[in-house]
Nucleic acid binder design. Structure first.
Length: 871
RNA sequence: GCCGGGAUGGCGGAAUUGGUAGACGCAGCGGACUCAAAAUCCGCCGCCGCGAGGUGUGGGGGUUCGAGUCCCCCUCCCGGCACCA
């Protein structure tokens, strides 16, 4: 009879037991090896999505596996609770962001618990709690003292209707996403963190992270963007209307190709450069051009294909080595935000300069030659820009020098004239943390008319964010909150006003992992416990954080280290970036030319006779829809699957098993309803099989097994051995396969029912349950105790493969002839090479391949195959 | 353009160091049970071929007794970065 699989009762009972036992409470214990397993904490957006389920299941499998292996495991959870969505929800629903956030947290916490995660909830935190963000403020003040935090004026996107700053991604085609108003560029003062001070260390220490994916490290290295070259100045005597020398008479440029300096035929400056602004005053045509450049599209794809355009300023500057006059152009390909906003142009050896010079008929002067290549002005050639093979020509005293020697000599000469030196340039910018937003951590500064910007004294921390504000969409409500605004100056005691900007929410997430690891003291940011648990042994999260969050956290750790708060250089020893969850996308063109999307449950796939999917039709009208392939689950494409529905229908174990089984953690996961059903079917079979076994207590294995019993036991132990290897390399899909294989072996053993099968089954099933328990913890706990293996599978020992079970008396060897499979034979384990060789050559199934040819040699791969080479 | 990662049946994906390609599952097909259906169980399942056999891991070449795996060239796909001077 078919056994029911009552997953609701099973899961509820197991979760209740863990809660009663305080099973996942983690305490520092120096006598045990520790394992700090951390998944990126969620933003409390309302409810869990599949990405969360995947993320947290991966972490939970690792946590539970290490726990059973004897590690002292910490797996905490919390909430990245500040941020814009709470404000937007508040504007829409007239609910204070705090209430919206805490309601979401309560709901999502319930959902997380229903997944059966092995989390130490006693360490739960939310970044919107004053006890937490107090330490953002405290560390910010320490950074101010050290000069790591400083104030400067920045250009931002300003929405004139909402009276607020917009993030870049909130500006669509130059207009505010909400108001549709044309966005203005405004210079606004804000606080910056001097992350560039750590640029070199952030780059170098990537080498200390062998447990990080290569691509993440590459992305960070690119982002940091170290570039070694020479910064030098062209001199000039250009004065503004007041007769003041512009930029002290120096046009600074940065170049990585100082060796080509004698090939300079013009300079190009960005549209925003002071020289361009100056020249535009007396040149309306130029002014118009500059305006056009500034408004130009900033879409990367457009930039790549954009035509190089420029205009002569009519100004000229003096070449620092030759004394020659060099014209200054405005070029749309020069960026104000990188280097000096100006470049020396060497058309002969820079492809962009070459194109520019050709277009505007500027001179091109060769200054590098490569043996065997001849220079022609007709078209750009690959070797013109090659710095590894060329030597200087037409370059006076530098002629004959290679790249490095020439750069050294030229840098030295420029330095002697006081006009330049070698310099390292970084792409990385300092981190602007001021947000003109309400729902975030207040920046602890007081503005006093007498004393200026005064830091809030430590004993007045935290500066609490008032939680009863309801933003109305027009600017930061803190600006209208008198209770918050009004204060007294800590220095002179006169009435003063608080800073109303809040911190970027990336600050909140830059150190939460260290707080989890600490006791939650109100006196200290982190304590000794942090030293025990940190660094995080395994961090798991989405690739979308490859740069921002992970770079900020590395920076923040180094600052905390330099303040003697922690003793690690890097916070995350190993990083796993899980793949996204994809689902089918179905759509149809509407009459009006738009696209209408259909949820997967609204359509039916159409197969051909081979079972190949050839299309789909809408259930509602039976007419075909377009299958757009797989894509990330999203509201707009209507292809999301609600984890809650999955858990309700099949249970958490099924959800977890399917997530692990469907694909390896780092790869994208393709959603499949029938795959979920398959996973559920497997767990039902496990449950049913368990109930065919008698209690485990009475069955001891005999000393020696033979025949199908030995065979079944060998299969199970061999599968276990492979599964452990896969667990260690975090390839969980094949671990799930291994559990399925074990059940197949056990069912076959039982069907053949040779005498004495029960002890083999009892042992085999105990291995299956333990192997499966990190993935499906509820059903395995239920069966473990029901069958009498023990009370608590969490405390069971991790199974070890019995090597003696793997040994076979007789081995099946494959016979190849010239590498092609021709047969197989059984040999005794003790058979020596010559015996195997003669048995293989004499084997009946290969005789026809040996006719008329000579056996040249025989290759034997132990336990695998025999290859007979003939010719 | 540069950097990184890929390409294996109808599908998701296996295959530690080069050693039986397609594990495990999904879909499909056939059968049993059933009045019937669902569920369940049994069997088949890369392609060509009745069969023997041939062929097969994006394409081409190479190394090797033996290549999905190593080397060279090419095509395509995904991700990241980018007038970075």
């Amino acid at each position: 009879m078919q056994q029911q699989y009552p997953f609701r009762e099973i899961e509820q009972a197991a979760q209740q037991k863990w809660e009663n036992d305080n099973a996942f409470r983690a305490e520092a214990d120096p006598s045990k090896p520790k394992y700090y397993c951390l998944s990126m904490f969620p933003y409390p957006s309302g409810k869990l999505h599949m990405g969360h389920v995947r993320n947290y299941t991966i972490g939970d499998v690792l946590a539970r596996y290490h726990r059973m292996k004897g590690y002292n495991v910490l797996q905490p959870m919390g909430w990245d609770a500040f941020g814009l969505p709470a404000e937007n929800a508040a504007i829409q629903n007239r609910v204070p962001p705090a209430k919206w956030t805490w309601d979401n947290i309560a709901y999502m916490k319930k959902q997380l618990k229903s997944l059966g995660l092995a989390i130490d909830w006693s360490r739960e935190l939310a970044t919107c709690q004053p006890e937490y963000y107090k330490w953002n403020q405290w560390l910010f003040l320490r950074m101010l003292e050290k000069g790591i935090a400083y104030k400067k004026t920045q250009i931002v996107n300003w929405d004139p209707v909402d009276q607020t700053v917009l993030a870049n991604e909130q500006v669509i085609d130059g207009r505010g996403w909400r108001t549709g108003a044309l966005v203005e560029k405004r210079e606004i003062p804000g606080y910056y963190l001097n992350i560039t001070r750590y640029a070199q260390e952030l780059l170098d220490d990537l080498d200390k992270l062998p447990g990080w994916p290569e691509r993440v490290k590459t992305m960070q290295a690119n982002w940091i963007g170290k570039s070694t070259g020479v910064r030098f100045a062209f001199t000039h005597d250009i004065r503004d209307a007041d007769g003041k020398l512009i930029d002290d008479g120096k046009l600074w440029v940065f170049t990585t190709r100082a060796d080509t300096i004698m090939g300079v035929t013009f300079c190009a400056v960005a549209a925003e450069h002071p020289l361009a602004t100056h020249a535009a005053r007396s040149n309306p045509e130029l002014a118009a051009f500059i305006e056009k450049c500034k408004q130009g599209s900033v879409m990367e794809a457009d930039l790549a294909t954009m035509e190089k355009e420029g205009m002569d300023t009519g100004l000229s500057v003096t070449h620092p080595l030759t004394g020659e006059q060099v014209p200054v152009w405005v070029g749309n390909y020069v960026l104000m935000s990188y280097g000096e906003g100006a470049v020396m142009a060497v058309p002969a050896h820079d492809e962009r300069d070459f194109a520019f010079a050709k277009k505007y008929n500027l001179p091109i002067r060769q200054s590098i030659a490569v043996k065997g290549e001849s220079f022609s002005l007709d078209a750009w050639q690959e070797w013109y820009g090659d710095k590894s093979h060329g030597v200087c020509v037409n370059s006076g005293k530098y002629d004959g020098l290679g790249h490095e020697a020439a750069v050294d000599a030229i840098a030295a000469d420029l330095k002697a004239k006081g006009l330049g030196d070698k310099q390292v340039n970084w792409r990385l910018r300092d981190w602007g943390i001021s947000r003109q937003r309400y729902w975030g951590c207040p920046i602890p500064i007081i503005h006093c008319d007498n004393c200026g910007d005064v830091p809030v004294p430590d004993n007045q921390l935290p500066v609490k964010l008032p939680e009863d504000c309801v933003p109305d969409g027009s600017g930061n409500p803190l600006n209208k909150c008198e209770d918050f605004l009004n204060c007294t100056c800590p220095k002179c005691g006169v009435p003063a006003r608080r800073e109303t900007d809040t911190m970027d929410t990336f600050v909140d997430s830059s150190w939460y992992y260290a707080r989890y690891a600490s006791g939650f003291s109100n006196e200290r940011m982190v304590d000794e416990q942090t030293g025990y648990w940190m660094p995080v042994d395994q961090y798991i999260g989405g690739i979308e954080h490859a740069i921002l969050h992970l770079l900020y956290s590395r920076f923040w750790s180094k600052v905390m280290r330099d303040l003697d708060l922690v003793d690690y250089d890097e916070p995350f020893a190993n990083l796993l970036t899980q793949g996204m969850v994809l689902n089918h996308i179905f759509s149809r063109r509407t009459d009006k030319g738009g696209i209408e999307y259909f949820a997967p449950e609204e359509v039916e796939l159409v197969h051909d006779e081979n079972g190949k999917v050839v299309g789909a039709k809408l259930l509602a009208d039976g007419k075909p829809v377009d299958f757009q392939g797989m894509g990330t689950m999203s509201k707009s494409k209507r292809n999301g699957v609600d984890p809650q529905a999955l858990i309700d229908q099949y249970g958490a174990d099924t959800a977890r098993f399917f997530m692990m089984f469907a694909s390896p953690p780092e790869q994208t996961l393709e959603w499949s309803d029938s795959g979920v059903e398959g996973s559920h079917r497997f767990l039902r079979r496990v449950w049913a099989y368990g109930h065919t076994l008698e209690s485990a207590i009475s069955h001891a294995l005999p000393a020696k097994l033979t025949g199908s019993l030995a065979n079944a036991r060998r299969e199970i132990h061999a599968t276990l051995k492979q599964a452990v290897y896969d667990l260690e390399r975090k390839q969980f899909n094949t671990v799930a396969s291994a559990a399925m294989k074990m059940l197949n072996s056990l069912e076959k053993l039982q069907k053949d029912a040779e005498d004495g099968w029960q002890p083999v089954a009892t042992e085999g099933f105990s291995i299956l349950l333990r192997l499966l328990s990190p993935i499906a913890p509820h059903i395995t706990q239920a069966l473990w105790s029901e069958l009498g293996y023990g009370d608590d599978i969490l405390r069971a020992e991790w199974p070890q493969p019995d090597e003696s079970a793997l040994v076979q008396d007789e081995i099946e060897l494959v016979i190849q002839v010239n590498g092609k499979l021709r047969g197989s034979m059984t040999v005794a384990r003790s058979a020596d090479k010559s015996a195997i060789e003669s048995q293989a050559v004499a084997h009946s199934s290969i005789q026809k391949y040996l006719e008329g040819v000579t056996v040249r040699k025989v290759i034997i791969v132990p336990n695998k195959l025999v290859n007979i080479v003939v010719g």
